[in-house]
Design a protein around this nucleic acid. Structure first.
Lengths: 114, 114
DNA sequence: TCTTAAATTCAAAGTATTATGAAATGTCAT
DNA sequence: ATGACATTTCATAATACTTTGAATTTAAGA
């Protein structure tokens, strides 16, 4: 599955450490699986923007409508919409209609990062 | 500092919530500062890649030389070097010479994300 | 119905990140 | 010195992400 040829010689301490965790096989076995790494990196990517972190912070204590977030952030509608969508896709916030407004709130998952 | 004009009317529940946290001024005061948001988003950006998360996982239990990481990841030297550098700049790993090898280890900061 | 406000969608432009291969650096052993 | 290996650096190409402004959708009120 994960074919890998080791270098012919290694630093002493690294060699030792590898033996201690069951050789290279044991070492590979304990690494997180690729789909897990992809999932986590996608989550971090959603968090990797100051505007989005600020949105999460704003939603910490109460849900808010887009228009308030817009006036506080001072950015264009479409830009805000883009970032809200990134956060929503990542499962960090969720939004629902309320009359002609759309109100976003933070999810459990999102709350871990405020 | 953060000039912002609020919408003329707001959803009832949002209006209430804003009052509860000291009006718009109180709300703004409690938000994280910009440099803080920038710092955190930079950290998340460094974590936003499966290869880099895998490197952190590999370093969890012991330091490793580049050659081992290369053979396990199966990627080009220069590519690995690039990602190691991203992690290093973010303060998540650190590397030191050991003979003709360079051995990387995880930092305290990095350990929080494995 | 007509108008207005709240949000989203879309395509194009702008910017940042990542991948690639060749060249360079430094270290060790011969 | 020379050769071999470990790693980095660099320029460039490829890809991904973000911004922008115009157009669209939807709901509410006159």
């Amino acid at each position: 599955m994960n074919e890998c040829t080791l270098p012919s010689s290694l630093p002493e301490e690294v060699e030792q450490a590898l033996l201690r965790c069951g050789g290279i096989e044991g070492f590979l076995r304990d690494l997180p699986k690729d789909h897990e790494l992809l999932k986590r990196s996608a989550l971090y990517r959603a968090l990797a923007d100051p505007i989005r972190l600020k949105i999460l912070a704003m939603l910490r204590d109460q849900p808010l409508c887009v228009c308030i977030m817009k006036s506080i952030l001072g950015i264009a509608d479409s830009k805000l919409s883009y970032h809200l969508n990134v956060l929503k896709k990542a499962g960090l916030i969720e939004g629902g209609k309320r009359g002609s407004w759309i109100i976003y709130s933070i999810t459990e998952a999102g709350r871990e990062f405020v």
